[in-house]
């Protein structure tokens, strides 16, 4: 194959945490594919405080290859999880297009990397490659809830890797400098996205469970209105309940019923009091959601592109 190499500069940002045995096959695949298709590229390995020989494996690979392209290793000070690490790698990358590899998984056919890039060139700022089915029930539940409430046309899922344009990265940075959850930030960026779905189920990658849970909660709060809607719903429901209770008490009182001594006054105090509390709670929630909006979303509106006819 003797086709012209792409002149766009691409960066591959790779997350690494105790994956020593996967390093070599992964680099082999990515290196070959990038070298075959691109004039210039760089690989950035973000080492999330690996305790095994992951970094030595990278060095060994590079010395075998004979250094022709820059490979950068970003060593994190302590374990910080995939999101922060990938942000660190993205900040360092200089490519026009950036490949994000959240894991060293090779569960996609050869050539898929370049194909994803080509798809991006057809007009998508973000292209993700993912299996058709998520690996676990909890993931599916999370993505289900997220996609239902995110308000974006684009559905997120368990990506194996993705490609994004520099433009997309700039956009996401303009919205918030260090996105808490990249996938969600991309989905909420208002740019054109595309998901290439591969047959099969995602291979399980081990991520830290507590970290995942808090990430899931944070992203639901930040990128969807599910939290607000649930809370507001509950407080409105309680508000209605106390209102009903108030009405019932009044009916009993005026209707000349004879409950136990003091029941009426107690009930009046309780229902009026709780009515007030839930009313205030509903208002506070509204304010809180506004505050989150104001702080977190620095840009008022999102434009996908401008077309002149």
């Amino acid at each position: 194959m003797n086709r012209e190499k792409e002149s766009n500069f691409v960066s591959a940002v790779v997350y690494l945490h105790d994956n020593a045995e996967q390093v070599s096959p992964f680099l082999e695949r990515v290196y070959n594919e990038l070298e075959q298709h691109f004039k210039q590229f760089e690989i950035i390995m973000v080492n999330d405080a690996s305790r095994d020989s992951s970094v030595e494996e990278i060095r060994r690979f590079m010395s075998q290859k004979g250094r022709t392209m820059p490979l950068t290793i970003v060593n994190m000070s302590l374990y910080q999880g995939v999101e922060l690490c990938m942000n660190a790698g993205l900040d360092l990358s200089i490519g026009d297009f950036i490949f994000e590899f959240d894991s060293l998984s090779l569960s996609y056919p050869e050539g898929q990397i370049f194909e994803a890039y080509c798809t991006a060139l057809t007009g998508y700022d973000i292209v993700s490659v993912r299996p058709r089915r998520s690996r676990s029930f909890t993931s599916r539940l999370f993505y289900g809830v997220f996609n239902r409430f995110s308000g974006s046309n684009y559905k997120i899922g368990t990506d194996i890797f993705r490609v994004l344009s520099r433009r997309a990265l700039n956009r996401v940075h303009a919205i918030s400098t260090t996105p808490a959850y990249r996938k969600a930030a991309y989905a909420a960026s208002g740019l054109k996205l595309y998901a290439i779905e591969l047959p099969g189920t995602a291979a399980g990658t081990d991520t830290n469970q507590p970290l995942r849970l808090s990430l899931a909660v944070n992203s639901l709060v930040l990128y969807t209105d599910v939290g607000y809607r649930v809370c507001a719903g509950i407080s409105l429901l309680m508000l209605l309940c106390t209102l009903a209770e108030l009405v019932y008490t009044l009916v009993v009182f005026l209707g000349g019923g004879h409950p136990i001594e003091g029941w009426t006054t107690t009930m009046l105090v309780i229902s009026v009091g709780f009515f007030g509390v839930f009313l205030i709670l509903a208002l506070v929630l509204k304010y809180l959601s506004l505050v989150v909006d104001l702080i977190f979303r620095q840009q008022k509106y999102l434009v996908e592109g401008i077309e002149k006819l």
């Binding site: 500069f9 004039k39 210039q40 760089e42 820059p70 200089i94 490519g95 026009d96 520099r166």
Partner: peptide, 10 residues
């Protein structure tokens, strides 16, 4: 040049 220019353009 490819790298330096890319960095500056970023």
């Amino acid at each position: 040049w490819p790298y330096m220019s890319q960095l500056a353009r970023k």
